[in-house]
Computed example of a mutant assay.
Amino acid sequence: MTDLSLDAVDHAFETAVRGRLDAIEALLQDTAAAQTAFVTDAAQHLLNAGGKRFRPLLVVLASQLHEGADASAIDRAAVVMELTHVASLYHDDVMDEAQVRRGVPSANSRWDNTVAIMVGDFLFARASSTVATLGTEYVYLQAETFARLVQGQIAETRGAQPGDDPLEHYLGVIADKTGSLIAASARFGGMVCGSSPEVLDALAAYGEEVGAVFQLSDDLLDIDSDSSGKRPGTDLREGVATLPVLMLRRNAEACDARLLDLTSRPLTDEDEVAEALALLRAHPVMDAARAEVARRADLAKAHLAVLPQGPARAGLEALCDQVANRSR
């Protein structure tokens, strides 16, 4: 996501943001270094595999709402958010028995589950020691965010319970697993530059919605991503019900029985995957799902109305548009 173009917003601003992100990348590597080469290699494994650096970008953009933010504080705040995110990926891969992450073997498949879990813990510890240098209010927010991440993972693992609305349950998981950390990233940036409580709350609300847009647009890309370079149908192969499928199930009486069957179970036959993708792409539910992503993107941008005008606010608006437009 760091390929976001801010040149139309302000060329000098874009140059400054990219320079800050370069400094954050170097600090990420340093902070993930350990006392032994093995732990350093394992801890930097996913960092070196790339990633969108979406959360550091949010920290940087929000930190530019007011002049005078300390560059070191910006970098440390961004590192806390990214390391918390990456640490959670190590744990997620163990729980999901994932074999690949960011195009490389997952840590659990390259080493084993124990190493992956312990390396995730190591990165959480590095995030915690870094956030302690920023102040107690940062420590509190990171701890509360981490609690939401864990609760979201537990809710996802248990699944919707009897009496739960499956779509609302799914959106709640997204809010806790994705929205919470993105909201905290935006708030961290605002805190670094001394934003008012009103602006901090607006940044957090914006981040919550952008987090949902981020994940829900991924749901659509998994179905309609032939032009993006991504292999479509991963969720269908795994039998994971995402936004379009859950919306289908809400109106099952009006849905083709074959499509309901194909989206009710993991698909191991590639012909069935292709059939399911074709049926979904032709179904009105895709337009309905895109409309939901657009609606939430509009909500996100509406929260920015209280922010001061300038390139930082324009950058946050542009970032939201880019995330939403991936699925169009």
Rank of each mutant, 00 (worst) to 15 (best):
D3W: 01
A12T: 14
V17Y: 09
G19F: 11
L28T: 04
Q29S: 13
T31C: 13
A32C: 11
A33V: 07
A43I: 02
L46P: 11
N48W: 05
G51V: 04
R53A: 08
F54I: 09
V59L: 03
E67Y: 02
I74M: 11
R76F: 09
T84D: 01
T84Q: 08
R102A: 06
A107D: 05
S109M: 07
N113A: 11
A116F: 07
M118Q: 08
D121I: 08
S128L: 14
A132I: 03
T145S: 12
F146C: 06
F146M: 08
R148V: 10
I154P: 11
E156N: 11
A160K: 01
P162N: 00
H169N: 02
Y170R: 00
S180L: 00
F188I: 03
G189T: 08
G194Y: 01
A204M: 01
A205C: 14
V210E: 01
L220H: 05
D224S: 06
S225A: 15
P232A: 05
G233C: 02
L236R: 00
L236Q: 11
L236W: 12
R237Y: 09
T242W: 07
L246Q: 01
P266D: 00
P266Q: 00
D269L: 09
L280P: 11
A282R: 06
H283P: 13
P284E: 00
V285P: 06
M286F: 12
E292F: 11
K301S: 10
A302M: 07
Q309E: 13
G310P: 15
A318I: 09
D321A: 13
R326V: 09
